[in-house]
Design a protein around this nucleic acid. Sequence first.
DNA 1: CTATGATTCAAACGTTCGTTTAAATCATAG
DNA 2: CTATGATTTAAACGAACGTTTGAATCATAG
Lengths: 247, 247
Amino acid sequence: MSAVAKMTTPNSADAKSAAQSSDTAERILDVAERLFMAHGYDGTSMRMITGEAQVNLAAVNYHFGSKEDLLREVFRRRLSWLNAERLQVLDALEAEAGGKPLKPSLIVEAFFGTLLKMGEEPALGGMTFLRLLGRTMTEPAAFIRTFFAGEYAEVMGRFKDALFRALPDVPREEIAWRFHFMLGAMSYAIAETDVLSLIDGFEVSESDVEAEAARQLKARLMPFLLGGLRAPLPQLPLGMVPPSAAA
Amino acid sequence: MSAVAKMTTPNSADAKSAAQSSDTAERILDVAERLFMAHGYDGTSMRMITGEAQVNLAAVNYHFGSKEDLLREVFRRRLSWLNAERLQVLDALEAEAGGKPLKPSLIVEAFFGTLLKMGEEPALGGMTFLRLLGRTMTEPAAFIRTFFAGEYAEVMGRFKDALFRALPDVPREEIAWRFHFMLGAMSYAIAETDVLSLIDGFEVSESDVEAEAARQLKARLMPFLLGGLRAPLPQLPLGMVPPSAAA
DNA sequence: CTATGATTCAAACGTTCGTTTAAATCATAG
DNA sequence: CTATGATTTAAACGAACGTTTGAATCATAG
């Protein structure tokens, strides 16, 4: 019988070895996270993963079911923390404000700052996960996009609503667009795959300086995002309504 | 003998059929552009391409050499126009300014506006190519990144220099970072693969409304980019020097 | 110790991949 | 018409892919 069929993590009831849980499954997740980041989903084979993790080829199917399920689990263990943290920070801000609209800078900080903080924390995936996330957001595979949509729906709605209330004079569709642009600037920045990197000498951050790189990125990115969000509204020649005008 | 081995486009010397050139090669390029956009490089097989283009499986290898060469040619025929156009616009602006620094808005418009104009022109690839470009910029495959670096090097250097002269009081590394962020916002926006799209009902642009979508995108994006570029400088706790501080 | 279920293991499955081959077909030049 | 090179075609190549299988091994409970 396979581990995934019985809907429970192996060794989960074990008290003595609870600290390390399933060594095999976790080692697979760590290696998969790094290889998916470096080579993409299609570019990473099961044999690459199981080889580096030093587990049997069948271990992935046994513990996770399939390669697609593995990718989902790689993201789930990080995004569950991120979603909870983002909601908690937003809840705290709104409670503190007592019904009044939040300052846009606080909302942006809560959404993007929370994510960028993961880059400083190796236990939360560090820059490896941030890069993986940035690169995966433009993956065209249907099952990936469906998964992301489900994982992000609630949080995205909450933060967009907060921005709508914070900027009552700005058309909602314009806010949705700019949220979109901010997401893009961040995704691309954390992906670290850009053309510029290869043109000039770009130093890939190593484990030690990784946290510093994440802090730098955050310090540089946040002013840019806020500047874009507050930019003068475009004079449109009127036309169709693009992404997500509704709440 | 293969077509690629003799270093000349088939039928290139033919006067009568010069208008259509090699029908097969061009049909392959058009289909490949669309499929690479929809499914990514690894997700698109030679059999998908040759099947939709209604050519023999061996036609790609015959006309282009390999699958990698095909992808490079798909981009080359669009980027050669884009590079030339960007340089020409910049040259014209600098000639008009007569040695004086350009306004940052003009530089940004020359760089990003030129690209976005391709989305309005089906003959230049339209939104299909824009989406392909946006998605490919975060592809991790080494041969793709190497190719992009070579294609972009000259133009990127020219525009960064123009920005350096336009903003003499802003640290060069900060300008490089913000150029980076602007590239990201644009890449992600034109990729149209974002999570938001699936959460709300997002209408994929069809051939007729495609040009209008491109105009909308440009009208919304340019103010955002300029707002980010002009944002207040971050107060940094000092630290390492990240991407591309040199000219 | 023995029994039971979880986990690991080596091996093989069928499929799809990019590429190559050699013959067939086409278009043009002499 | 005939010869020559360009192009197309059908078929096959070996390699790599994700997954499955059934036995071996391990850890724990009674």
